[in-house]
Nucleic acid binder design. Structure first.
Lengths: 346, 346
DNA sequence: TCCTTTCATTAAACCGGTTTAATGATATGG
DNA sequence: CCATATCATTAAACCGGTTTAATGAAAGGA
């Protein structure tokens, strides 16, 4: 590949002039510009990205960091990614998807500053090493999801209001007459799981339900299939406890597992079992039989807001900590109904 | 951020020694290694990615290039992405998602070599400028999908056998008794659309169908919603031509559009209308009502194979052109059936 | 003991750009 | 007509690493 020196020599000018022609940071006479451009075309010269980044101290790369050994993108991530990408596109940034597991990143030979100029971290955990690590660097980060409270005032983030959202949807189910719940939650170390559990508990305790009439099961391993987890947990729970009339699932894929479990137990949804899911904006939710009632998290907007926030932090040197709450809305379809027999509680 | 010089000074050794400690490319005595590492820790030093890339002429970044102004990831891309990512992960590569439109990339200020060390190009077109552009550079590329025949012997690619696959599924529909087809195809400039059209035509012509009894509609704009295209095209076509009994859709999202159109016309699937889709491995396909019959393209495997092939080209300096055909398989569910009345043709 | 080999370390050159300070040429003003 | 301001251009320093050739010390051989 031709270098800037080759072009300089070929067109009889200095390096600096060629540089200016391409970066347009300094005016160059039209005549010279044309001569340089012509030489560049002949030599098939293109400025080297790395050299440029080194000198400029700026790649235009945004990192999207997702933890997980065998991470698989879900519908939710898909929408989120689309949101991030659209903003990246508008501002001429590139997106680097980084799913390297933490253990890998910590190996000495990989202790390197990343290529990204800013990072979006997904699925923050209560004690998230990634955050601590990033804090000492000078790459601005934005979280999607709430950080642990230690960092809440130090890091900008975008999130739904998981606590009150879950409280609200639990009340909805309570109002329908349900008194026996199974809550299939996200992995326990995620802050989102903590928040949703809080909202759920607030509602059921407000309603005066005894501890025996609700159970929260956390997805054990983030790398497991949500579908299987939903299926197996539901199967066991329903076999062990006939009283359960409502299941809240963390994702629509998990809800699909619930559907399948109900089917194999010949339990009808919604007459015998109500199913609710924290869904994304998936086009497929309406296609469940019966169509899935859930809450839209607006994953795409989460992604957009996070990207906008990050770019703001990267360009303006403002160090202000910001928070954006993306509103959610319930979409009532037909997977939730009043339980068959309801003698007024438990 | 601390630089290598700071560490060298702090630990009383030279730049080169510090470099060797981190890169392990030259043995350094244990004593010195520890001293350097200690100093690095104190200073919170991490080797700079860009400087390293410049000197090494190697990022460990793979680019995934998708054309489209307002590109949105679909289920298919999702699976594909998961496949690519899993391989990237295994080999310690990072993935750069590049959806910059072509016009943007061609602007002078963006005429730069990319940060990637190898690229995967999606959705190749008959006359794909991206390929020509890449050919002159020294970044190896791998396509997912067939390139135009001019390049077929110069570029490695991974693909399904679209021609015979489409021929096969068309025969399946013919065997069911269908004689009047609508084929909702991908955008015309994609090679995949050409191949599928070829397979389709081969089958219908072999069956001796007159031109009037089948129609291929190409999705006009790649940036449009597949759902809307499926819906609107189906609606118009069925209103104009009652004889149509079978629709082949390019994607499952498009098929969803067909379902909705059928619903609004009160046409029953599959008794009045059979629907077939080139689907990915979506967990949602079984959830269509009725469950969608289609062909699995194994998007994840397409992604995996492409990534493996690319890394092979990047590391081994082999310049051999390879091709991998990922097999497909039909999944017969219940959206296709014999047409109600079939008097033996047309 | 002296000479050669082995080994860790270093100074300096290099990767391919950007940027600063200096230079020379032209335009402006008194 | 000379002094000054304006402008395009350049040489050299710089970004932060890696690598080569040179150096000096310790080990091995005669």
């Amino acid at each position: 590949m031709a270098t800037i020196d080759d072009v300089a020599k070929a067109s009889g000018v200095s390096k600096g002039t060629v540089s200016s022609v391409f970066s347009k940071k300094r005016p160059i006479s039209k005549e010279v510009t044309e001569r340089v451009l012509a030489a560049a075309k002949v030599l098939n010269y293109k400025p080297n990205y790395w050299a440029r980044s080194l000198a400029n101290k700026s790649t235009r790369i945004i990192g999207l960091n997702i933890q997980g050994e065998k991470f698989k993108f879900s519908q939710f991530h898909l929408s989120l990614l689309n949101g991030v990408l659209s903003v990246c596109y508008e501002h001429g940034y590139r997106l680097l998807v980084n799913t390297l597991s933490h253990s890998y990143q910590n190996k000495l030979e990989h202790m390197v500053t990343g290529p990204a100029n800013g990072e979006i971290l997904l699925n923050p955990e209560s004690e998230d090493e990634r955050i601590i690590e990033r804090l000492s660097g000078d790459v601005p980060i934005v979280l999607i999801g709430r950080p642990s409270s230690d960092f809440e005032n130090h890091i900008s983030y975008v999130d739904n209001d998981n606590v009150s959202m879950t409280e609200q949807i639990t009340r909805y189910l309570l109002d329908l007459g349900h008194r026996n719940f199974l809550f299939l939650n996200a992995p326990k170390d995620r802050t989102v799981a903590v928040d949703r559990a809080r909202g759920f508990l607030a509602a059921v305790q407000e309603a005066g339900l005894p501890q025996s009439s609700y159970r929260i099961v956390y997805k054990p391993d983030p790398d497991n299939s949500s579908l299987d987890f939903g299926y197996e947990t539901t199967l066991k729970a329903l076999q062990a406890n006939q009283a359960i009339t409502a299941i809240i699932a963390d994702t629509d894929t998990m809800a699909l597992g619930v559907y399948k479990a109900a089917e194999s137990l010949r339990i009808n949804i919604p007459s015998q079992l109500s199913v609710f899911a924290f869904s994304d904006d998936s086009v497929f939710s309406p296609e469940f039989t019966p169509p899935l009632t859930g809450v839209r998290l607006h994953a795409e907007r989460l992604g957009r807001e996070a990207a906008v926030m990050l770019i703001e932090q990267m360009t303006g040197n403002v160090n202000t900590v910001k928070r954006t709450i993306v509103p959610t809305d319930m979409v009532i379809r037909s997977s939730c109904a009043a339980p068959i027999t309801n003698f007024g509680g438990n």
